[in-house]
Design a protein around this nucleic acid. Structure first.
Lengths: 204, 204, 204, 204
DNA sequence: ACAAGCGGGACTACCCGTTGTT
DNA sequence: AACAACGGGTAGTCCCGCTTGT
């Protein structure tokens, strides 16, 4: 199933033949069709599994961040940092998102599968929106922003970063984008300090 | 060819049968294979065309932005605003990027086609990096940032915004993200307002 | 598979559509491609099978000839006679050689398939050369000849005879050629009769 | 047209696409179909041309042989020698016979084209049979043979030699077979001369 | 629960011949 | 006389899912 996911991420769902997956795994058709009703069913299961792992990953890092700090801003900054670490951990491989892949072949999937994807993204929002709201509450932003948009911006940084990373074949690219996003949040939430002369804040 | 692109964007390349494209256009296979050596050849031509239009679109908006202001920061802010307008103009349809689609089926394409994509992204960098550098020169940023990363962040906002927009079926999403990106640049480059009372920055 | 061979022998490999073969056999394409990777693979299998039968046929007749006589010359003459009988047995049908057919479409086949053919011909040489050498040893020939060339001459008589037989639509033609070949060997190996005046040898 | 013939000899007629021939020649379809009604028509024309050249080649060498000697046996031996020379002249290339090629795809051709081939072979017989008869008349053979069979044997040596030559990729093979054939004729026709002791005839 | 083989259809590619134009 | 473009049909390949047997 990991193998299936990997192949789908490299070739797309339609571009991955069942025979290829099964051949690579040494599984026969008979075995496959015992567990899945159809290829679309496998697609659905892959999406479900990906969504579960995805949200579990988020939850895990979030829990760690919350243990490491009780400050709403710090929690979020740490969360992003943890994601950066995770990406670094996988080395030179550029991660890829099954959801993005599916969305580029949207018409091939039934509504059920697409719902999984939408729910997954909503789950991120549901999980993080309150945290971002708390952060904005605690650190009034210089610009008025919606917590939901900040969550989307994080997800967008993931999705966009993966695509750009693949295009440039640069595993570091996404981490740089995440750092940029983090510095954005810091800047957004850091109160202006200057008294008189035009000194300038320098974020770390 | 527009039709072909549209179908590929909805179903992916492998998921789009030649018959579907040709049937929709009323073209016969004989005619098609007279002009293209293979389906992959069509894929290449689509990528080429998309890259040309993509960069032409950037150049056009960039030229307009440079006519509207001579300030480096303003030019970039206007540029982003023009993109927002363009997105608004297409209404409820959520735009999609052929490059992202191809990258999700990367193994199906030959190196030549993938090169087109990488070159297109490099072209954005090459075109905008100097402008962002000029902007940072004129408006020293609060945080040290690389111009190239800011360009990537713009592209990432496009790519990520399209994916999220599709996931939520929300045509407005990407515009909100672009506005967020714009406000980020403003914040980054706007000199610190000098008030009196000694508030304090707390960096992480 | 017999049907496939027959059709290929009448129309050539490229000239024989898979549909024709499958249609004649009542086999579906799905079934076919389950057993063969490609049409070329069928071509290879046909060549292999033909080579096996070919050499088995030779070996069988050779064994029979060796049982029927212990004289090296007689063994070879008998061998040729057995081939004549076999040809006669198939009646009015003119035999045809898959190898010759393939060699006339050589560029369509991969090296692997062509190797099968070359090996088959070498197999004839390897099997018969020693016998011909023994024959020449026992019956010093009037003219110096190489055993390998005599083997080739036998094969050439087969190949050429089949082609001429087809051209003239004359099933007897090859048998006449084989008889000619046999009489040549007899003449070559029969010691000169010593009489007095210029009498003449008359072989049967 | 030479190019067409060459391609057909390497790939067979069905295996040679019109587009390939035309592409190799830089000719367009329009031009082709002005001169030929169909591909089959080209096939016919190729056969005709090949037959003409073939018989012209025979006639030319025969005329030369007849100028070089007035003895019927010598004429034939010289004729064969001239063919050997011609084969040697083309170097390492192994000649191939369009007729044999066509006969291996017989069902693809109409009767008209096959007739060309049969007539060509008959033409050889018609041209040479009388000469062989004269030879046998002048030099009573040791074995009773039909002149027509000796002609066929010559043709068979050509056809078989070409096939074997290709199989072994040995340009010399056919020449060795022709020499063997020549020595056969010499042996067949040379009167036995010995008076007493068991000397032996040596052909040259 | 799994394995092997098969069926039928769809897909890409190709190929011969034609058509309208120059 | 020649050409570019095209049409219609077919060839080979593949692929999903079903059937049958263990």
């Amino acid at each position: 199933m990991d193998a299936a996911e990997k192949m789908v991420l490299e070739r797309g769902f339609a571009g991955t033949a069942l025979d290829d997956i099964l051949g690579a795994l040494g599984v026969t058709k008979g075995a496959f069709f015992h567990h899945f009703r159809s290829k679309a069913d496998l697609g659905f299961a892959l999406a479900e599994r990906f969504a579960e792992r995805d949200i579990a990953h988020l939850k895990k890092n979030l829990a760690r961040a919350e243990r490491l700090s009780s400050d709403p801003l710090q929690q979020i900054l740490i969360l992003i940092g943890l994601f950066e670490e995770d990406i670094e951990a996988i080395g030179d491989m550029i991660p890829s998102c099954l959801f993005a892949s599916y969305l580029h072949e949207r018409e091939l999937f039934d509504a059920r599968t697409i719902d999984i994807i939408r729910d997954a993204f909503r789950n991120w929002r549901a999980t993080l929106e309150a945290r971002f709201a708390a952060m904005l509450e605690a650190y009034p932003p210089r610009t008025q922003v919606q917590p939901a948009d900040l969550v989307d911006m994080l997800l967008s940084t993931f999705e966009g970063g993966m695509i750009l990373g693949r295009a440039h074949n640069d595993p570091e690219l996404m981490r740089r984008q995440l750092r940029l996003y983090r510095s954005y949040l810091e800047m957004l939430c850091k109160p202006v300090v200057r008294i008189s002369a035009g000194s300038r804040a320098s974020a770390g």
